[in-house]
Design a protein around this nucleic acid. Structure first.
Length: 341
DNA sequence: CGTCCACTGGAAGCCGTGGCGC
DNA sequence: GCGCCACGGCTTCCAGTGGACG
């Protein structure tokens, strides 16, 4: 890139970091809509907003950025961000919500029952409160939504597909949930992704002039990223780390698969050795019955866990979209999921 | 049909850890 | 420093489900 390409701001190429507002190029409309939807209108009625779209389309970024902006406008508001992949049981979610919203360093952190926590929420309700439930379609017990909308909270639900969100809910709750604002984040087009990358590299490399060659490179990354901004941004970062003063095509060829592996690896890192062994076996076999899987796992690990625990691990792997379970009972089979999302 | 078998996931109990009050 | 106690990770036990087989 343009003579001296020094990476001056790595954070800009961190797909996890919430970017500055001016870095947002292709979600400005959605950002405004979300801000409008969430800004306290005075009515004080509980609000419900949906952010729907595939992975890597800026949903989490939008939600977090919006709360940052609102927070700077009205510092007294309280917010909680919860990723439902990490926490997906009813009490867990409530605990996180209470922890985030009620900064009362609860003397009784004990009080772990649902009713107690709802009570706690009710007692501390004088300022606007916002709860983001990310990956909300992963909720094991969507009834928790019922608890939350009862409590005059502003809920932002993030999910890939809206349908998944409503599965297995009783009609009463379903009709309560259909009233919210829907904001869709579709997959980025190649030109949108290119624009995002241009903006990012402008800040990351502190340069404003691109050679046509450089633009062409960003385009190339964008073409290969499947509309997923995380992959694109990560790839640019890997390329910058790999390359010298100027990015070469070889840097890009290295960076693209590297970005995917890294992103995948990052979620695999959350697994413990048992979960990883199970995943590896499933990946090696391609397709395996629970019995064979347990047997193979038993051989591979020195101190294997019991079947019951293994089942919990497998459930977790399913939650994380690393594997997929098919069929029931004796016909059950596990198989790996490679593409993400 | 009834019985067996493989499998899932809920419930309860065990135990080590870590925070808290004294 | 000591004892208490809740919590999380794990196990054990079990009810429920659905295919296979006599």
């Amino acid at each position: 890139m343009n003579g001296h390409s020094m990476l001056v701001n790595v954070d800009v190429l961190d797909e996890e970091k919430v970017p500055e507002r001016e870095l947002v190029v292709h979600r400005r409309h959605e950002l405004d809509r979300l801000l409008d939807a969430l800004r306290p209108s005075g009515a004080g009625s509980a609000d419900l907003t949906y952010l729907i779209g595939p992975t890597g389309t800026g949903k989490t970024m939008l939600a977090k950025l919006t709360l940052d902006i609102l927070d700077s406008e009205l510092p007294e508001l309280e917010t909680a961000y919860i990723n439902c992949w990490q926490h997906y049981e009813r009490v867990e979610i409530l605990r996180e919500v209470v922890g985030g919203l009620c900064d009362t360093i609860t003397h009784r952190k004990v009080a772990a029952t649902r009713v107690d926590m709802l009570q706690e929420l009710r007692e501390t309700s004088d300022c606007p409160r916002y709860v983001i439930l990310d990956e909300a379609d992963q909720l094991a017990e969507p009834e928790v939504l019922y608890d939350l909308i009862e409590e005059d909270l502003n809920l932002v639900l993030i999910a890939n597909h809206e349908d998944d969100l409503f599965q297995g809910l009783d009609e009463r709750l379903q009709s309560r949930l259909t009233v919210g604002t829907r904001i869709e984040c579709n997959s980025y087009s190649v030109s949108e992704l290119t624009a995002i990358l241009e903006k990012r590299s402008e800040y990351a490399f502190n340069t404003r002039h691109y050679s046509p060659y450089h633009i062409r490179q960003l385009e190339y990354i964008a073409e290969r990223a499947d509309g997923d901004a995380r992959i694109a941004i990560r790839a640019l970062r890997e390329a910058a780390k790999h390359g010298g003063r100027e990015l070469t095509d070889a840097d890009l060829e290295y960076a693209l698969p590297e970005a995917r592996t890294r992103l995948r690896q990052k979620s695999l890192d959350d697994l413990n050795e048992h979960q990883r062994a199970l995943y590896e076996i499933i990946e090696e076999r391609g397709r395996i019955s629970p019995g064979d899987l347990f047997e193979a796992y038993h051989k591979r690990i020195e101190e294997p866990r019991t079947k019951r625990t293994v089942r919990k691990y497998l459930k977790k792997l399913e939650q994380y979209n690393h594997i997929e379970a098919e069929g029931e009972s004796v016909e059950r089979e596990y198989r790996p999921l490679t593409g993400d999302g």
